[in-house]
Write a protein that binds this DNA or RNA. Sequence first.
DNA 1: GATGAATGAGGATTCATTCAT
DNA 2: CATGAATGAATCCTCATTCAT
Lengths: 209, 209, 209, 209
Amino acid sequence: MVTKRQENALKTKQKLLDTAAGLIREGNFYDFNIEDITKACGCAKGTFYTYFKNKEELSDEVCRHLFNQIADRMQQMKNKSFVERLQHYFESFMVEVERYGINICREWIRNVIDPKTSSAGWDNSKWQFDVDMLNKILSEAIVAGELKNDVSVELLAHIIICELYGMMTCWCMSDGVFEPKDWTEKFFDMQVKPILNNYLTEGENRCNM
Amino acid sequence: MVTKRQENALKTKQKLLDTAAGLIREGNFYDFNIEDITKACGCAKGTFYTYFKNKEELSDEVCRHLFNQIADRMQQMKNKSFVERLQHYFESFMVEVERYGINICREWIRNVIDPKTSSAGWDNSKWQFDVDMLNKILSEAIVAGELKNDVSVELLAHIIICELYGMMTCWCMSDGVFEPKDWTEKFFDMQVKPILNNYLTEGENRCNM
Amino acid sequence: MVTKRQENALKTKQKLLDTAAGLIREGNFYDFNIEDITKACGCAKGTFYTYFKNKEELSDEVCRHLFNQIADRMQQMKNKSFVERLQHYFESFMVEVERYGINICREWIRNVIDPKTSSAGWDNSKWQFDVDMLNKILSEAIVAGELKNDVSVELLAHIIICELYGMMTCWCMSDGVFEPKDWTEKFFDMQVKPILNNYLTEGENRCNM
Amino acid sequence: MVTKRQENALKTKQKLLDTAAGLIREGNFYDFNIEDITKACGCAKGTFYTYFKNKEELSDEVCRHLFNQIADRMQQMKNKSFVERLQHYFESFMVEVERYGINICREWIRNVIDPKTSSAGWDNSKWQFDVDMLNKILSEAIVAGELKNDVSVELLAHIIICELYGMMTCWCMSDGVFEPKDWTEKFFDMQVKPILNNYLTEGENRCNM
DNA sequence: GATGAATGAGGATTCATTCAT
DNA sequence: CATGAATGAATCCTCATTCAT
């Protein structure tokens, strides 16, 4: 049973998360600032600390939320083919990158360099999340007979992540030269499919790639 | 004519740059700290402002210096073949990434997000530098007949940069899963050469790629 | 008649007092923290304010409780001789100092410096308690013919308290150089008894002091 | 050579120390407050941190300064007799207690309980200072033939410190019942001299104590 | 009576930058 | 040119207390 009060508390926390995400998205700030968040959220500075131990914890939760959204979307693709799922992963990835922009990318990188400041519950860096996600997609593709048996899942996962991160970083550093959706599609066709081609089983339609 | 005084001034400035680069490399700090630099350099805080308008200017110059080193090395490769030069660019790029590590990558990214804080003299982001560099390598390859006439230099440059940044970002975010040199070589063979293959002229030795 | 509700309320309050005393004893905190107490007590922060007007009131009650324990113990010594009772007071005093440690001593001192923050009900500082207690012991000793008639009770009380506080403060500041029980005994023999000697009546066995 | 600037800097630091000591003395605050100090000193908050690493360091220096003053005064008593010097120590001690009041006593106690927060250079608690000082006075008295050879310096030092701290704590906790100077004198005569009596050599005039 | 979310004053500390010497 | 003392805005975080449910 959830009381009205607990419900309200949850709403307040969610509002803080949303406000923070919004501010990150709009690029209004570079480094977080608790006062701005609470002001934009319409609550007191102290309220922030009712829900988050510190600054770090907020950014971790924002990231986690974002990852969960991708994971959820992938879940819904279960009955699709391997290539479709992979393409969908590329697209989801870039949608989030575009939405949250460069600041959130920096947070992902921060998780790597400064793991000590990351709060206890958050030990999955973006990198680990992507490795896990791709390992799963690839393994399932092998089981489903879509990928050859002798593929090194680990190696292929790393190669694909390299492509993914190249796309992300290019977008961040080119300052919007690309329109992410178009580019992702084109990029997937031109660079990812050729790489996959060697590893797909006969059954898969490799010709029209 | 350079007076003794001017000479000394130049030395002081160079020492500041070197010290800063050293500190970045050692990862001793994440966000710059003027006092640390000047202390390590053995001069006063005020001296810093004799040579640099502000903090940004220093990091810009550190980057520029690093880019120049890569450019110089490329210059020495003029008589080599296109593929050799490109591979050399990949290697130089990763050598610097490895040497300066994640902090310098962040600076490159910062140049994009926060152009206002960038000092006047520094309008070349890492992105722009790489675009220019690759455009030059590709154009020269066309002139030399190594690349087909009808290649879209711009598109190919972007694709190659994507590969480059993917490599860099993976290294940063994987927290040292890869040994940069090995990986660069393998990566160049497995992912870059296949892409190039379609654009090379007959004369080029495409078979052993 | 005490209703069930009133009984529970009393229990809750007592639990809060005990928990606070326990935390002080363990030295878990230096400055009080309401949340820690209520958490350790298993009740809500707001509950604290049902029973205590504010933070000060709690520490006052903890002190008062402690004083009452000493007073009770003294009551049980009524049939003992003056010197025995005094020695017992010294021992009781140090037992409490040792149990609650330096934090409680600080509270006693705080009562003096910051009388404004002391709640209305608490006007007996540790000092006042000790003065009253010693006055009583000494007066009773005069009535009982154990102390000479012409002794200035007030002066003697002050002198004895000085010895008492010296012992306490030494223990606090020496960081455990002394074992309180041993020291108290030795101290009482070496410093207190000689002082008393001049004021005891003939009937008292002054020789073996 | 000390330049004008260094001289000024020293003055600023001294002014900060004096202002802090003054505020402590006046009991204007209980716990330090950097802003109050700098405001009263007429300088910016940041200036404080030019001279002190943190709050702790300031209080340590205030204590140290105070101890040094006592030590200096004792130095000037070198040619006096043992009892005179000891009495002088009691007086100096109480002069400082009276001047700086209860807050500084708390700082002395803090040094014991919370040694971790004490800055690196400050490892001498008030307790240690007093032990050292008394050991020195007592040892010199033995060498000078004023005290018996077989006196346990350590034990006697502890006993005397107990008397000293009793005096101090009484004054703090009695909220000014005593006039420190008068009391110290009376106290020294009534309680300290009798204790010393047993340890003084024949040569010393013990009768008129 | 019990709860615990919300509050906001308060305080420590950092650091880029200026400027008088 | 070199110096380094002085500045003060910026920001994080703590915690006693209130009050609607």
